[in-house]
Structures are given as C-alpha cells and as structure tokens.
C-alpha cells in the first residue's frame, strides 16, 4: 500500500498527489511513468512521474479525470492509500547537455513536461516552454514551469487567459523568427502532439513526443501498448514512451486509443463504488 502524503487541486478535474513510494522515488527519472491500481477490482493505469524526491521517498503524479478510474482517483484524499504503484517504467527522456530546447505541454501534458524542462534547465540548456490549455482554469503548473524555463509562453484556446491560440501558433512563430531550436519535446493530447510534429517536420527540427497508448502490465509482457514508429512495431512501455515524433504513426495510435470507447462509456454508467472510491486510510 502506498500512502497519499498530500493532495492539491490544480483544476476542478486535475489533481496532484504526492505518494509515498521510496523505491520508485530513488530511481525515477524525467520521462518515466508508474502503473497504478487503486482497488482490488481496479484497472492498471499508467501515469507519468511529474516529480520525485528521493530524500522524502515521495513521487508526484498528476491525474486528469477522464474516465472511471481517474475519477475515482480524483476522490482519494490525503492519508488514503493506493493499492499498487509500480515503477519507474519506460525509458527516461534523453537530456542533452547544451543548445536550446523548446518544451511544449498541452493540458495535463504540462505535468510530464515539467521534470524534463527542469532537468534540461539544470544542465544549462536554454529552455523555452510553451504551455497551453483549452481555457484559463485548465492551465496548470505555470509557476513551476516558469521557474525552470528561460522563456515561457502560455496559450489558451479561448483566449480567457494569456495569449489566445494554440501552442503550435507560438512554435510556428519562433521557428519563423529563426529562433535557434535544436530540439522540441511535446507532451499532451494526441492531436496536439501530432500538430507539433507537423509544425516542425518541414524544418527538420528534431522532435520528440511521449505516446500514451492503452497499457496493461507496463513491463513489455502484453503488447497492448504497441505503436508504429518508422514502420516498426514498438512497445511504448519498454521501448518508449518517448519517440521520434516524425516517425510515429499518429493515425494508427489515435484509432487504437479509441478501442474501448464503448466499454469506457459503460463503465461510467455503472453505479459502481461512489464517493469512497475504494480508498482506505493507511496503517
């Protein structure tokens, strides 16, 4: 059992948890993820490591409520326990030691971008961050990202905060202004990552994205997480989740991501365990 040390509401549907998991905290690196299960009947869901503190034995995860499991998780409180917490999984992001990198985070994708931006910043890379959300109240971790970026741009789709538009608008401008960019890394909804890939492709700027296919075990045993990269089948949980954006078959990934759409609706309609969410006080 893994205790929730603290909880913070980032938006009405985005929650940050600090979880006691000393072994995971020791080993975690930017770009990696954990697999979480919150009740005996529960699903195993992957969540990115948004931060980690080996000293405190704590791992931070940020959960966006999109379906049954994430909503149940959103109802967990400080002091509650998470049943299973496996990690860190996946290959860490490759953190270069010089030059300039643009970090693009969309929606809750800002959470996984944060530790990557920080690692780059600490190694002396010039970091430009672009974070975007649909609307003002969905903008998360602005202060945190700002502290580890040399420049920060914020966009909202509806213009309710900062600049109106998409993260790719800013990226396009930077490229056109001949801003020196060695690398772009983008994490967020599949449509956004795909748009970033298309923005940089004509200019041949090295671009990485973190794929979020449906997973089961997260250890390379089931193949649920397969994605096609450069025409080859790869398992995102062990070969990724970060891949060369210009090689990824996004159309396939989008189709595979919808495989269980009907079941997800059914799961939500099911009365199921309300309120309690299966969370139990620790110890």
């Amino acid at each position: 059992m893994y205790k929730i040390l603290s909880k913070r509401m980032l938006t009405p549907v985005t929650k940050l948890f600090e979880v006691e998991a000393p072994l995971v905290a020791q080993k975690a690196q930017p770009g990696q993820f954990v697999i979480v299960r919150i009740r005996p009947e529960g699903e195993r869901i992957p969540l990115t490591v948004a931060d980690f503190s080996p000293e405190r034995g704590a791992v931070t995860i940020i959960v966006q409520e999109v379906g049954k499991t994430t909503q149940m998780m959103g109802r967990l409180k400080e002091g509650d326990c998470i049943l299973d917490f496996l990690g860190p999984l996946g290959r860490p992001a490759e953190i270069r030691g010089s030059g300039s990198v643009v970090c693009v985070g969309g929606g809750f994708g800002v959470a996984p971008i944060f530790p990557i931006a920080r690692a780059l910043y600490r190694r002396g890379v010039s970091v430009t961050s672009i974070i975007g959300a649909r609307t003002r109240e969905l903008v998360i971790l602005e202060e945190e990202v700002k502290a580890v970026s040399h420049r920060l741009f914020v966009t909202t789709d509806d213009g309710s905060y900062a600049r109106r538009g998409l993260v790719t608008d800013v990226l396009q401008e930077l490229i056109e202004a001949k801003d020196p960019i060695d690398e772009v890394i983008a994490i967020g909804p599949m449509v956004m990552m795909r748009a970033v890939a298309e923005t940089t492709r004509p200019y041949g700027i090295k671009t990485f994205v973190s794929m979020d296919p449906i997973m089961v075990d997260g250890t390379g045993m089931c193949g649920a997480c397969r994605v096609e990269v450069g025409g080859k089948t790869r398992f995102a949980c062990v070969d990724g989740p970060i891949f060369d954006a210009h090689q990824v078959d996004f159309a396939l990934a989008q189709k595979r991501g919808k495989m269980y759409a009907a079941e997800q609706q059914r799961a939500m309609a099911e009365p199921g365990p309300c309120g309690g969410a299966g969370g139990s006080p620790c110890h």
Partner: peptide
Amino acid sequence: LMKAYLFPQYDTPIK
C-alpha cells in the same frame, strides 16, 4: 488477472 469477464464489476474491459 484483471478479470475482464466480470466487467463492469471489474474495471478492465476486453473486446
């Protein structure tokens, strides 16, 4: 392992 045959009492679906 995930008991998808008992979906939706269990959360993991199978198609």
